[in-house]
């Protein structure tokens, strides 16, 4: 290589450098505007899905409450309902012929398995017999696990179920297992 070749090399570098610059620039610079649109659309779709899910959960809760027959009365009615989130057992002041619904604070209020406790007040303002409230179905749509101790029309048969045979069997198996372990 001589001094004559230096201008040729310079021209060659210049030509190659411009081509390389063009390629490098095209490869590095991303289409920013298009990526921004995609992110916004994704956020919108997630938000819409959350809103739809919340609406669906609310509808399910309403459906469960209506199926269980626990209908919250309108505000103008004498009935009152206390919120589920309150952890304390404060009871709203009872009015005549009122029905007070209390939600079990230990259960999530937005859960379909939340249990409603019903207190019935008669026209004197006193709390009525608990037997009257016990006949109401629970939110599971099944009578409460209460024994029939007094005859009423349409009542289920008294609870005569006993676990004594099962206990005797368990005791026998435990004894046999203990004897086998001691023998081995």
């Amino acid at each position: 290589m001589t001094l004559r070749h230096i201008p040729l090399l310079a021209c060659a570098f210049a030509v190659l450098a411009s081509g390389a610059h063009a390629q490098f620039t095209a490869a590095v610079v991303p289409p920013r505007a298009k990526a921004k649109v995609d992110t916004t659309a994704k956020k919108d779709s997630v938000r819409r899905a959350e809103v739809a899910l919340a609406a669906r959960v609310t509808d399910m809760k309403k459906w469960v409450d209506s199926a269980a027959g626990v209908a919250l009365p309108p505000a103008a009615d004498s009935s009152s309902a206390t919120a589920a989130a309150s952890a304390s057992d404060t009871v709203a002041p009872a009015t005549k012929d009122s029905v007070i619904l209390k939600r079990n604070a230990r259960v999530r209020s937005d859960s379909a398995a939340s249990i409603a406790t019903v207190e019935v007040h008669d026209s004197t303002g006193l709390k009525a017999d608990s037997a009257a409230a016990s006949d109401r179905p629970t939110s599971q749509g099944e009578p409460r696990d209460r024994e029939t101790t007094r005859y009423t029309a349409g009542a289920p048969a008294p609870n005569t179920a006993t676990a004594l045979p099962l206990l005797a069997l368990v005791a026998a198996f435990t004894l046999l297992a203990g004897a086998a372990l001691r023998r081995s």
Binding site: L164, V170, T174, G178, L181
Partner: peptide, 25 residues
């Protein structure tokens, strides 16, 4: 170890059986 566990099981089983027997009696 096995003998101890066996003795414990025997005691528990006997206690349950006694409770059931007392109830029936």
């Amino acid at each position: 170890m096995r003998r101890t566990l066996g003795a414990v099981l025997i005691v528990i089983g006997a206690a349950i059986l006694c409770g059931v027997g007392v109830r029936y009696a």
